[in-house]
Design a protein around this nucleic acid. Structure first.
Lengths: 246, 246
DNA sequence: AGGTTAATTGAACAGTGTTAATATAACTTC
DNA sequence: GAAGTTATATTAACACTGTTCAATTAACCT
């Protein structure tokens, strides 16, 4: 009984070649332009060979996607870890900004696009690769979450609003992504003059809001509840009672 | 010399059939699943016929895109036009929210996706259809811009920061879109509990920020400039000096 | 009726992702 | 070294995609 295999370093090498070829093609031309045959030609193999290493074209893309999240995570971690959580948050948003410019195609598939097959698994995650991708994506958000938790540490009101820290983190990320996304879509190209200024102004505004909120939280909830009398008629009043319920 | 045509109502009807078939298919299955042959079968014509009315598959999609913006515009306009600009803004964000849930596929191609051929015309817009689409898209943003301008009307500091109103409008829209987009991508599905609450909390926070800002603007710039002494070391301070320069 | 011509079509092309049968090549055992 | 075993690689095909073009249809005018 013989159990013959090709040298494992060789098979690993071909898989690497395929991955690398996909990466280069993808970073040059984006999602739509990359085809199995192009990848095969660049990797120096047959189109069918790819299916020995990836079940799907989507599976291959998932590897690319995961690589993208890994790169972003590395960039985020490379940032000097300041003791001030706000400095960290601000640095993260700057990294996020630069990433969207330096790796536009990565950014697209990571945040704007969708490899739908993998991103919404309503039931059990049939593919364990999908799990890995989700994990590495959440690691990125985890850094923001951690900084945000650090920022709000010591606020007594937090116990009654457990989802607040997460909400603040997701809102910050959402704001960053939204501005980047709409800018890149070109939908407001005629209106916007300075993208960078718009982005960081929004970020700073939100961070300032967080600072003010923390001060109020530390000053005690009483001031919060009294806050502002309900105005008459249709005049608008933004309540912040949300995080209290549920 | 004869100038024979098929009855014009008939040709208009086939074009309508094609458009309607695309619309229905699209709203059921989204961008990727819709093919020319499916459209043709549903419209009761040959695949080649479609190319009599649309130069491209992208051109056909552009019509769908435009329809999406038209629907959104209609929804925005249907909102009772309150005298308080903040009420209007808040209503717009609510419409935007509902639209993203009621017309998810529309939302994708309008804000997350990209028919890249048409959205980034660096030079002259070769296709006048692209122009029409841009126009109807900007009409939507125009409503927000108008409300925002109403809100800041009378603030004396605006003359030195002409881009501020636009920036605030785009930031509001960006925030809304970012949260919707990341929610729909599923990237933070494990973390987020109440999407609606997260969304409107972010909106209300921003509107509250605008209210505060306006108060400060009306109180005069002096208080703004003094604002807050620069903290020591690495501690973060969000400056709001941006809108002043340039 | 016959002519003109816009609208429609069937058939084909080049391309896509994917797969089944086949061929290759590396290892073990004789 | 030769034969056998088997993981890897390839060839050829399938069903599909968007798109084009020559040929056909059908409505109008003379």
């Amino acid at each position: 009984m013989a159990r013959p295999k090709r040298p494992p370093w060789q098979v690993e090498q071909t898989k690497n070649k395929i991955f690398q070829a996909t990466l280069e093609l993808f970073n040059r031309q984006g999602y739509e332009a990359v085809t199995i045959r192009k990848i095969a030609r660049r990797a120096g193999c047959s189109p069918a060979t790819i299916y020995n290493y990836y079940s799907d074209k989507d599976a291959l893309y998932l590897d690319i996607l995961t690589e993208g999240f890994a790169i972003l995570y590395q960039l985020l971690q490379a940032e000097p870890r300041s003791r001030d959580p706000l400095v960290r948050l601000r640095a993260y948003t700057a990294v996020f900004y630069r990433f969207s410019l330096d790796h536009p195609y990565y950014y697209d598939i990571m945040f704007s696009f969708h490899v739908p097959k993998y991103l919404d698994y309503a039931g059990t995650p049939a593919e364990e690769t999908a799990f890995a991708e989700k994990e590495v994506a959440l690691k990125n958000i985890g850094l923001i979450l951690e900084a945000m938790a650090d920022f709000y540490r010591g606020c007594p009101a937090l116990r009654s609003a457990p989802g607040m820290v997460t909400g603040r983190a997701l809102t910050l990320l959402g704001t960053c992504h939204g501005i980047i996304s709409l800018h890149r879509s070109g939908i407001w190209a005629e209106l916007e003059t300075d993208f960078s200024a718009l982005y960081f102004s929004a970020v700073d505004d939100y961070l300032q809001k967080l600072t003010r909120e923390k001060e109020e939280l530390l000053a005690g909830e009483v001031r919060l509840r009294a806050a502002r009398q309900q105005p008459t008629g249709e005049e608008y009043s933004s309540r912040r009672s949300f995080w209290k319920k549920r």
